[in-house]
Computed example of a mutant assay.
Amino acid sequence: MIGKGTPAGCTSKAVVAAVAAGGIITFDCGPAPVTITMSATAKVRNTSTRVVLDGGGLVTLSGGGKRRILYQNTCDKAQVWTTSHCDDQQYPQLVVQNLTFADGNSTGDDTEGGGGGAIFARGGQLKVYNAKFVRNRCDRTGPDLGGAAIRALDQWGDRPVYVTRSTFGGAKGQGGVCANGGALSSIGVSWVVLNSLFSHNDAVGRGANPAKAGTPGGGSGGAIYLDGNTFTLRLAGTIIQDNHANEGGGAVFFVSNDRTGTMSIEDSTLRRNPSDGFETYPGIFFLGARKPSVTGSTLR
C-alpha cells in the first residue's frame, strides 16, 4: 500500500520502492484524485513474480515531461538477471490498471533502442487494464524506435500484450508523440487490444524505415507501430481516430518482415487517420501473411 489516507504519503519515492519490492500495489491517497510526479523512474526487479500497480481510478503517475515512468527489462543486469534466457522468461508479470500515465518522456534514453515514454517492458508479461495515457513522448526521430505510451519487446512464450478498456490520447493535445507509434510500439510482439480508444497520437519522424537518404527515419504508425517477423494484432471493440503519421499508417503500421504475421479487426472503427506518405488500407500500412481480417468494422 502506498499512502496512509492523505496525498502526503503518495510520493515518487514510495512508488519507486513499492515497484522494486513487487507484489500487489494499491494506493491510499485520500478520496480525491492525486497526481504523483516521478523524480525517478520506477523499475521492476526481475526477482519479482508479479507486480500489479492499481491506481483505483484516482491516481495519475506523471513523468513531469522529463522521464519515463515505469520500466521492466529482464535482460537488464542492474535489475537482476535471473535466468540464462532473459529474452524469454515467464516472470515478472507486470499488470497496470485503473491508472493514468501522463507526461512520460524517454527522449534521449537509447536503452534497448529507445521508446516507451510511459512504459518500457521487455520480457516477462505485460497487461494493461482501464488505464489512460496522455501527453507521453519519446524521441522524435529514428527509423525503428517508438511507443510514446508503451514500448514492448520479448514477451514470454510469444504471448501477446493485452490492452483492455484503455485510452491513448482521447482529445486534442492529449495524444502521444514519437518518431513512430504515437501510442504503442514493438518489435516481434503480438497485441490484443480490446474496447480501447486511440486518438490524437502522432508519428512525427521523417524518412520511414529503412530511413531514406538524407533523413533521420521514422514517421510511421500514428497510433500503433509493429515490426518484426511472426506476430499478430487483434483489435476488437476499439476506436482509432484522428491520429496522424508523416509517413505510413496514420492508424496502424504493421510490417511482418517474413510475411507470417496476421491482423484482425473486429467490431471496431478506424477513421480520419491520415498517412502523409503511404498506406495499403485507409489509415493502415500492412505487410503480412494475408489481408487483414475485417468483420463488423469501419475503415475510412
Rank of each mutant, 00 (worst) to 15 (best):
G23K: 11
D242I: 00
T262D: 09
R137Q: 15
S186N: 12
T100M: 12
I224F: 08
A131W: 00
T6K: 13
T82C: 06
T141A: 13
G30E: 03
Q89A: 05
N209K: 03
S190F: 01
C10T: 01
V95A: 06
T60N: 11
G147P: 01
G222C: 08
V134D: 00
G65N: 06
R135C: 03
T215C: 04
G173D: 02
Q97F: 00
N246I: 11
G65Y: 10
A131F: 10
R137N: 11
G115M: 09
A236H: 10
V34M: 00
D54H: 03
A208C: 13
V161I: 11
G5F: 01
D276M: 09
K4M: 10
T141W: 09
G64Q: 08
T262Y: 00
G181V: 05
I239H: 08
G182R: 03
G123L: 07
Y129K: 14
A42K: 03
F133A: 02
T41K: 06
Y129A: 12
A223V: 05
A149P: 09
R50Y: 04
L53T: 05
S196P: 02
F278S: 08
N257H: 13
T37E: 15
T141F: 13
D54P: 02
F168P: 00
S39R: 12
G22P: 09
Y91S: 06
A236E: 15
I284V: 15
A78F: 03
L53A: 06
T111I: 04
L153M: 13
G108Y: 07
I69S: 04
P292V: 08
S199R: 06
A213G: 08
S275N: 04
N46I: 05
A102E: 14
Y162T: 13
Q97T: 15
A42I: 02
F278G: 00
G116Y: 04
S256F: 02
P292S: 10
T295P: 00
D267Q: 14
L99Y: 06
V294R: 08
S196A: 06
Y129R: 13
A18C: 06
T100N: 08
G56K: 08
L226T: 02
S166W: 07
F168C: 10
G296V: 04
N136Q: 10
G114H: 08
T107A: 14
N243W: 02
H85N: 15
T11F: 09
G214R: 09
T215P: 05
P160G: 11
C75N: 14
G104Q: 05
A149N: 05
D258V: 13
D54S: 11
P292F: 12
G146I: 06
M1F: 06
L94Y: 09
C10W: 03
V134T: 14
G175H: 07
P210K: 08
I119F: 10
A149Q: 08
V193N: 01
D276W: 07
G142F: 03
P7A: 08
T295R: 13
S39D: 15
V189F: 03
G63N: 12
L226D: 01
A42F: 05
V96P: 00
C86T: 05
S48Q: 12
R206T: 10
T238N: 01
M38L: 15
F285N: 11
A152I: 02
L94Q: 05
F133I: 00
Q89Y: 01
D158F: 10
G55K: 07
K127I: 10
D267K: 14
G170Y: 11
A223S: 14
P274T: 10
N209W: 03
N105D: 15
Q79A: 15
N257Q: 14
G237E: 04
R259A: 14
G283P: 01
D88V: 02
K127V: 11
